[in-house]
Design a protein around this nucleic acid. Structure first.
Lengths: 360, 360
DNA sequence: TTGAAAGCGATACCAG
DNA sequence: CTGGTATCGCTTTCAA
């Protein structure tokens, strides 16, 4: 009892537990890590000592002793659009920092919407070699099952950017895309001055995130803005060239388009089209993802607003969640919520990707 | 040389340095931590071994051995508005988590705008007892000098929410308030449908953040929205009662007010006024800080948009920056940039302060 | 000016 | 089943 009082200044350690429970360090460790070979009574004795002392494991010390390495894998589509590139950069940057914290980030690309490649990659993963994987891919039945198998092998899995809800992934790291679509619609409704038609550019039917955005957008425009009419969307397949090619016909068919919601990738094509043809038009354009290209468009007035998600935050969050899942420890949910960022020209960060790492 | 090659699998340690430099661990440590009592030649030998091996210190192991505790202090105004309360909650929550990471967060309140109290607190700080302090206060000459003295004593100082630029504080943790004001103005200009007057509610002339917002707001309205006219602002002193009291006269004098920019605290008074009197009016209202009260106002349509800064992020960022400064190690500037958040009804987080800490 | 050795808090191997 | 002990990477006396 006196001992306990004396100890209250600093936090209890395994040694304290051993002393209070009257067992050795090794036994305490066995109980702490639920390893076999301890009698029920002993387990109880140790556990009550733990409870009595209010012990909390020092993760840093544990990882040091364990020489624990976290090997995490990011599985991305091999798209070359700016968003995916930003994500890759964020992974590379975080990876360079985390190497000093016993964590390695590996990145692997598979062809877009190639469920098969995703499944094969996941199935080939050896739990001895990989602790967790972040998957940015389409929600297909085969992917869903492959995620389940990976988790069954003991590999932590988070869905990145686009959710895989029915796969039992451990977490989803990204924005609520229905809400993002609703946000875009609200801005559109506010920004457009008169009645007219709105064009939505989508990506692929296979991408859950694009679908959700579209649904959210339509719901709000339909409910709150009777003056606006959403015309049948064009499917741009995230391809700038295709988008630039399709747009003239659309504007021919609907000359009264007063707003464009670019809900997927392929913005460069949209930007080129507007710069070449629609300068004079009073067109409200809302797009997704703050990238070098979309920043310029926002600065120059080609875009009116950008809905975005912070790629740095996404990578850091995925990393923390994969580690926490692997270690089965709690995490800070407030820190892991990815915001639906709204950027106007006025609140853009000065530099999208400040590479500088400075000394205080 | 062979040794080095063999070692490339894992990262170099102090032992490797000692071996390569042909000195003892103790000497390596002395050089690493720039402690006295080492000959020039020896220092050089160790340093070149460090460079050769590309050594990076394992902070976790160092802190373990050092039994390093970070004692950080947050100095806040004793205002009871929701923003300060949210900040206090974030400090309490982070503090509870960080206690397991050798970091204690202490919070101290001083009367608002009481430079003297801030100076006294800073001057009383013992560098043996406090590693860093985050100051949320007015930028007065005396505060500036007290910050300088604190830093001279070896205490890390960051300015919180409102910058103290001429004080040589180590960092500023908060948003660019000029840009925040500009953002509010752009939204206002976009949201207001017709010509009219805009009322700005400010806080105090002593608060740098409020002044900056006001300047940014006026600049954009003046330049981009000739149809809008900003009437002389009212100084609400962050006081809901005062604001509620002042508003009727203002609307009497200017019945054509079509927008309100609440650039400081005291929103509850504004909300009550609008709910009681201006329901019928077509009033665009933009306020600062997402709090329980402002969330409700946004949901109900009393507010049209909220400019905000994430209190959780602010506290985490201040903590990381104070630690990094105290240890003189680099930090990740992309992670520390506090965003100018724009919230509409559609992109509000579901719960402003999710207290839940869940298991994966 | 330098080195040997004892920890920090936790883990893991090898005996018994 | 349980305990002793070396070790992780780094810091810190205490001697020499």
């Amino acid at each position: 009892m006196d001992d306990d009082d004396i100890r209250t200044v600093s936090k209890p350690t395994v040694n304290d537990i051993a002393r209070v429970a009257g067992v050795s360090l090794a036994t305490v460790d066995r109980v702490l890590n639920t390893r076999p070979g301890v009698r029920r009574v002993t387990i109880d004795r140790v556990n009550s000592a733990i409870a009595q002392l209010g012990y909390v494991r020092d993760t840093a010390a544990a990882n040091l002793a364990r020489r624990r390495l976290y090997r995490l894998l990011f599985l991305l589509p091999s798209n070359r659009n700016e968003f995916v590139i930003a994500l890759e950069q964020a992974i590379a940057e975080q990876g360079a920092k985390l190497i000093h914290q016993r964590t390695t980030l590996e990145r692997r690309s598979v062809p877009p919407f190639d469920s098969r490649a995703i499944c094969d990659t996941l199935d080939d993963l050896d739990p001895e070699e990989v602790d967790g994987v972040a998957v940015f891919g389409p929600e297909t039945p085969s992917v869903r099952d492959a995620v389940k198998r990976a988790r069954a092998k003991g590999i932590a899995v988070v869905a990145l950017v686009s959710d895989l809800p029915s796969s039992d992934r451990d977490h989803f790291v990204g924005i609520d895309n229905v809400a993002a679509g609703r946000t875009a619609a609200q801005l559109m409704g506010r920004f457009v001055r008169d009645a007219g038609r709105i064009l939505v550019i989508t990506g692929s039917r296979l991408a859950r995130d694009h679908l959700e955005r579209r649904n959210g957008f339509d719901a709000v425009i339909g409910a709150d803005y009777p003056n606006l009419d959403v015309v049948a969307s064009i499917e741009g397949r995230d391809d700038p060239e295709l988008i630039q090619e399709l747009l003239p016909d659309v504007f021919e068919a609907y000359p009264d388009i007063c707003g464009i919601y670019s809900s997927a990738a392929g913005n460069p094509g949209l930007i080129r089209f507007i710069e070449e043809t629609s300068r004079e038009r009073d067109l409200v354009v809302i797009a997704h993802e703050l990238t070098p290209g979309s920043r310029l468009a926002l600065s120059s007035g080609v875009f009116d607003a950008i809905i975005s998600q912070d790629t740095g935050h996404i990578v850091r969050s995925a990393t923390r969640l994969l580690k926490a899942t692997a270690d089965q420890v709690p995490f800070d949910s407030t820190q892991e919520r990815i915001r639906i960022d709204i950027y106007l020209r006025e609140n853009m960060p000065l530099s999208p990707i400040p590479h500088a790492e400075e000394l205080p």
